[in-house]
């Protein structure tokens, strides 16, 4: 999927500030990292200021295996955001990572009708521009 539809309306991009700046900064370095509590070891996503399990403020951006499974998805047949009109049908996919956290993303090598729950997938990185790299997923090579 290209990152600008033929309508010319640019795709929305994350703001690279605060904790989102950290997360997408790792992606730009070709690493998928999630927050992990330094005290209780709990993994978490999306990034949070504190650990909801133990209350700790201490965390590390710990590297994920990059592997997970398709947890669920939708197939958008009619875009409700103008930047995605030319992309239909497309499938936002929820991936459950080996670490237990879930990530909303999309597949790079799998048509919507080929998706299935528990499909094994692995992360790939797609550069949108100089600053933004999005984590996407492909079928795990078997």
């Amino acid at each position: 999927m290209v990152n600008q539809g033929e309508t010319g309306i640019p795709r929305p991009l994350p703001e690279l500030e605060g904790l989102s700046g950290d997360f997408y900064g790792y992606c730009r370095d070709r690493e998928l990292r999630f927050q992990r509590c330094s005290d209780c070891g709990q993994w978490r996503h999306v990034p949070r200021e504190m650990c909801a399990e133990c209350g700790s403020w201490n965390w590390e951006g710990e590297r994920s295996s990059g592997r997970g499974r398709v947890f669920t998805w939708t197939v958008v047949a009619r875009a409700l955001h103008p930047a995605f009109q030319d992309a239909c049908p497309y499938a936002p996919v929820v991936i459950e990572m080996e670490e237990g956290v879930r990530v909303l993303s999309e597949m790079t090598d799998c048509a919507p009708e080929e998706l299935e729950i528990d499909l094994p997938v692995e992360v790939v990185f797609e550069d949108v521009n100089e600053d933004v790299t999005l984590p996407k997923f492909r079928r795990t090579a078997s």
Binding site: P12, P14, S20, T74, P92, L104, L134
Partner: peptide
């Protein structure tokens, strides 16, 4: 939603 949903068209 802005940082983790919208870039993937998960918008509504």
């Amino acid at each position: 939603a802005r940082d983790y949903y919208l870039p993937f068209g998960f918008s509504a």
